[in-house]
Computed example of a mutant assay.
Amino acid sequence: MDLTPQKIAIAAEGASLAGTYYAPSGEVRASLVLHGATGVPQRFYRHFAGWAAARGIGVLTYDYRDFGESQHRPMRDSDAIFADWAVRDQAAAQRKLAEIAPDGPLWVLGHSLGGLGIPFHGYPERTEKIVTVGAGIGHFTDHPWSYRPKVLAFWFALGPLATAVAGYMPGKRLLLGADLPAGVYWQWRRWCTRRDFFNGDIGVSLPEPNYALSGPEVRICVARDDVVVPPVAVRRYADALAPAGAVYRCFTPADYGLSRLNHIEFLARDNQPVWADLLGLSVPAGG
Rank of each mutant, 00 (worst) to 15 (best):
M1Y: 15
D2M: 12
D2L: 15
L3S: 15
P5T: 01
K7Q: 07
A9W: 03
A9K: 06
I10G: 00
G14T: 14
S16A: 12
S16C: 15
L17I: 12
G19P: 01
Y22P: 00
A23I: 05
A30T: 14
S31A: 11
S31N: 07
A37P: 01
Q42C: 06
R43C: 14
F44E: 05
Y45M: 08
R46C: 06
R46D: 13
F48I: 02
G50D: 09
A53D: 11
A54D: 15
A54P: 10
T61Q: 10
T61I: 08
R65H: 11
D66K: 11
F67D: 00
Q71S: 15
H72R: 12
M75Q: 13
A80W: 08
A80H: 13
A83I: 13
W85F: 09
W85D: 02
W85Q: 04
A86K: 04
D89S: 04
A98H: 02
P102C: 14
V108G: 09
H111F: 01
G114K: 07
G114C: 06
G114V: 05
G117D: 10
F120P: 09
F120E: 12
G122P: 11
P124I: 06
T127I: 07
K129H: 14
A135Q: 07
G136A: 10
G136L: 05
G136H: 05
F140H: 10
H143N: 10
P144D: 08
P144M: 12
W145H: 11
Y147A: 12
R148K: 13
R148M: 04
P149F: 09
V151M: 03
V151F: 01
A153C: 09
W155Q: 11
F156M: 14
A162K: 11
A164I: 05
V165M: 12
V165K: 13
V165L: 12
M169K: 14
M169P: 04
K172P: 03
L174Y: 04
L175P: 01
L176P: 07
A178E: 01
D179Y: 04
D179F: 03
G183L: 07
V184K: 04
W188Q: 10
W188L: 09
R189Q: 14
W191V: 00
T193W: 02
R195I: 10
D201Y: 07
D201M: 13
P207M: 10
P207H: 15
P207V: 13
A212K: 02
L213R: 06
G215T: 02
G215F: 02
G215S: 05
V222M: 07
V222G: 05
A223Y: 01
D225F: 03
V227S: 03
V228P: 00
V228N: 00
P231W: 01
A233G: 06
R235S: 15
R236G: 03
Y237E: 04
A240W: 03
A242F: 07
G245R: 07
V247S: 15
D255M: 11
S259T: 11
S259D: 13
E265V: 08
F266G: 04
F266V: 13
L267S: 12
V274D: 01
L281Y: 08
S282M: 14
A285E: 11
